[in-house]
Design a protein around this nucleic acid. Structure first.
Lengths: 181, 181
DNA sequence: CAATCCTTTCAAAAAAGACTGAAAGAACTA
DNA sequence: TAGTTCTTTCAGTCTTTTTTGAAAGGATTG
């Protein structure tokens, strides 16, 4: 099994993508599996992936399942072959949208809930606090409110960007630059 | 040491912020230390932090140093006290800006470099590839180019948003919504 | 300069997280 | 139905990351 220039370029990409993933709370291997499917563009089966990334069957299976759950890859079948194959979405924008939506769904909601929770608990019990603590409570509430506000603004912006679709990204980028000047 | 409603609200916030950090490649404790300084607004010394978060001296020292390096907190001193204190005096927007700039600096550059590297390696060696591999190489190059392009666009947008400052964030949000319709 | 007070460092320990491989399960085939 | 082929699961193992605590390093004070 000798590697040519294409293989080497793909390997470099896969490794780097794995490292990236690791700093972003996605496991290195999951990111590598994804990168491999993305960059080759070919349907690959579990054995291909095990061999190319030197990982165990169990590991491959787990990570493939997660990627399917995220919506980043899908199962497919090759005519006359019983094995399952996997293919990645090939469009960069699509990938970005999927990942961003998923993270937003998992993370933005919970943090907003916690902030609101803190505020309402504070509001309910504030009258019973000692005088000097009341001031502090007001300050704290202000910080929570600011943050909530900020997150909401960002969330609205993100939503607009995500729903714009890849064709409009240029327009959007231009509009932002214009608004900032 | 009995906890009042303010303490409880702050603790909830600190815990949640820690969990958030953990899913974002920032260690749970570092995020908790930051949250604590942010939400109380008070200058706190190492002992305060050790006690409030139930962590060791070494751990506190390490994480405080990292936060100072990130520019999220700063050292300060209290009149008539030899200890060092720490404060987080940034507002929500400044915090966001600091964190985003730091991550961008560390992560965007390297990934762009790798993508370019892959492309140029491919270009240099492509002529020597077998015919069927050449097609693949072209496809691969196209993917790398697309991704590079996409990252650049996003990076430009991000830069515009970051340099806009908190006063303009409303304007910006409105401009985006308008552009998307 | 010795004593005190505080901070930093770092080797070792603990905790968290990821991976393996063998075994069980599912889906087809003859 | 029994056999074959492929997939999933999960207890145990291994790896990586985080935390601890004790010792060393600085700075300030009397």
């Amino acid at each position: 099994m000798s590697l040519d220039a294409l293989d080497r370029a793909q390997q470099t990409f896969v490794r780097r993508w794995g490292e990236m993933g690791a700093t972003w709370g996605i496991s290195r291997t999951m990111a590598e599996v994804h990168a491999l499917l993305f960059i080759t563009g070919d349907p690959l089966c579990t054995d291909n992936i095990m061999q190319m990334l030197q990982i165990s069957r169990g590991n491959a299976s787990m990570n493939l399942r997660q990627l399917v759950n995220w919506g980043l890859i899908r199962r497919t079948h090759l005519r006359g072959d019983r094995k399952e194959y996997f293919v990645s979405d090939l469009d960069t924008w699509q990938m970005f949208e999927t990942i961003t939506r998923e993270r937003r769904r998992r993370e933005v909601g919970p943090i907003i809930d916690t902030l609101k929770q803190c505020r309402s608990d504070l509001e309910v019990d504030a009258p019973r606090l000692a005088k000097d603590r009341q001031e502090k409570a007001t300050e704290c509430d202000k910080k929570l409110a600011d943050m909530l506000d900020f997150i909401n603004t960002l969330d609205v912006m993100l939503d607009a960007v995500l729903s714009s679709g890849s064709e409009q990204i240029g327009t959007l980028s231009a509009a932002i630059s214009r608004a900032v000047d």
